[in-house]
Design a protein around this nucleic acid. Structure first.
Lengths: 345, 345
DNA sequence: CATCACGTCTAGATCGTTCTATAAACTAGC
DNA sequence: GCTAGTTTATAGAACGATCTAGACGTGATG
């Protein structure tokens, strides 16, 4: 039985300040057409009444909503980092962000429709799984920015990380350390897994090394399974599809008495919060979520405001060296299963 | 330069069907006042034009928005599980969910204002950090449900998990296994940390055991630090504030050559996705996110529709036994630092 | 036959804004 | 003192829906 008090409107403020509705609107929007004196008077009255403009009404009249729709997957911690950064960048550009999660029983189309209903002026989709055709259809109504997935057609913007460059760095770094037997635990059917797999192949060949790939996936369990497979022919270094996969892989190695990085070097991808944990200290390829998010927001705003044509932005990732990568042992014989001390705390 | 085609409105549909605006509105809302024949005719026209009602306009006129505002923290994976479940429950009740994250540089008030701007009819706040006074102020405008935090005042609803019961289970379980030296790595200033600390104290005494608490926190790093502290006087079992804390703690134990659960049993709290990982298999107290989320949504909808008074719902958590808890060694001497085999993969 | 009730439909007001005219007040120029 | 130009203010029409009140046709009732 709470007393629901009506919130003040433009009319209330106008009455209180002794001016017309329209003038209050002008002042609230910081638009030209009001003198300093009345501006102060109106702002004072608004503050007094605790007036907050009604977004719905504002939206309805002016087609501008200053709202960016962002869809993400609730099960990906990496997405959360992007959400964080997107909020900040959007706020800096004077936009608000509407969030919609892709979850169990809530397909991407549902999430997108919700964003459109809220009045989003542009859509930013993290790793969208829709077909290019579907994306293009949405893009005919509103600018669409695909984040972390490229090749989405000419009418859809994309902001992605250069997977080739990332893998090139990874292979180059490990090779420079002296590793000859480097395997790639791939991402299976995950987005950009194919890209990285191919890049690994060409890059290894370029270094005169044999490109060995074992099936993996985006989760810890996938890394764990891959670790079992590697038992048969243990390499001196491994590049995992992502950090979670790397974690599982390391756990598997540890369970088999191998020490990282003394026996095997492990390199992750994403530089997620897991990688940064003090007891993990995972070397990783950073896609720099904040940068990617900022680029996506910029792209969306540019499209909305400048009416620019769609573009495809590719950012170069960088290597973050931590404690899971090192020079290989003098000779990295597969099958060396001697037990080692636990890592120095 | 995308061709942005205008979306059809009520008028378009009315014109196409040869009826008035109002009648189309009636049909779209499934309200009484239209014959079956015209109903079909209108629906057909709407389908043909791809008409979707404009939420903003609808919102503006009717106060009903069928929207629940949900605020969560982007850095808490446990919150993501709740978001998932909330979507499902809300959809079942015919509501849509508006999401707003509390993130770096985006305080809770900001998140809430955004939700209100979207037209949320009720707010569900996960572990809100605002003062009771602030919560109550919001509650005077719109029903507010506090999730995972109780004692929020009479005007605010709350849905929480029974921390006393959870800790009681934890202590009871470990005591039943034969443990006498049980410590609690607490949650520091985190929400409900005080509650659990107190419960631990009384429960240990009830079992005739000495309640030892060491300072911890909600993250892996906190657990890690707590592990160092325990070095001085190693217990036979530990109850961590949450799963992430437990993970850090276990890592610390492992680094010091101790085996879980052979040397020390570790019990987590939350039963998060981490706990379920095959190589972690953390025993944990489950608060059952889906159930809590459903309860919160139910509460919100009840408040909106039934105009019921605020209520406080408390759900009982349950124990999930996995592989980090076991009977203690025959005599659990502190200082026994002998190295053990790695866990059987 | 007049009245009433009922189901179906519609005109017009309304929600809280923004936007487009246009009026009023003032300044400046001749 | 009249006209033109600029600044400041306002009235009224939008935006796309819902809601209220009432019109219209039909059939039943007194």
């Amino acid at each position: 039985m709470t007393e629901q008090q009506r919130r003040p409107t433009l009319i209330d403020v106008a009455k209180a300040a002794g001016v017309s509705r329209a003038l209050v609107s002008i002042v609230m929007r910081d638009a030209p057409g009001a003198s300093e004196a009345t501006r102060d008077k109106v702002l004072e009255a608004a503050r007094e009444l605790g007036y907050r403009p009604d977004t719905r009404a504002r939206l309805l009249r002016s087609s501008r909503t200053k709202l960016l729709g962002l869809s993400f997957s609730s099960s990906q911690p990496f997405h959360a980092e992007i959400v964080d950064a997107a909020y900040a960048e959007a706020a800096a550009k004077g936009y608000e962000v509407a969030l919609s999660a892709v979850a169990n029983g809530r397909p991407e189309t549902r999430a997108i429709e919700a964003l459109l209903d809220f009045g989003s002026e542009a859509l930013i989709l993290i790793s969208p799984t829709l077909s290019n055709q579907s994306l293009t259809r949405y893009a005919s109504h509103v600018p669409v920015v695909s984040l972390l997935r490229e090749n989405v057609g000419d009418l859809v913007d994309s902001v992605s990380s250069d997977d080739n460059a990332g893998i090139r760095m990874a292979v180059g770094y490990l090779a420079a350390l002296g590793h000859r037997q480097i395997v790639h635990v791939d991402g299976g059917t995950a987005i950009s897994a194919a890209q990285r797999r191919a890049a690994f192949h060409t890059e290894m060949l370029r270094h005169g090394l044999k490109p060995v790939t074992v099936p993996g996936g985006p989760s810890e369990e996938d890394g764990l399974r891959a670790g079992q497979l590697l038992q048969l022919d243990m390499p001196s270094a491994a590049i995992a599809f992502n950090d979670r996969c790397a974690l599982g892989l390391m756990e598997s190695l540890r369970a088999n008495g191998l020490h990282v990085p003394n026996d095997v070097s492990v390199l992750g991808y994403d530089d997620s919060q897991f990688a940064r944990l003090s007891y993990v200290q995972l070397s990783s390829i950073s896609q720099d979520a904040p940068l990617l998010a900022a680029a996506a927001v910029d792209r969306a705003v540019d499209r909305i405001e400048g009416n620019q044509p769609p573009a495809h932005v590719i950012r170069t990732p960088h290597l973050v060296k931590r404690k899971t990568t090192a020079r290989p042992r003098q000779s990295s014989l597969p099958g060396d299963q001697s037990r080692h001390q636990p890592s120095e705390g």
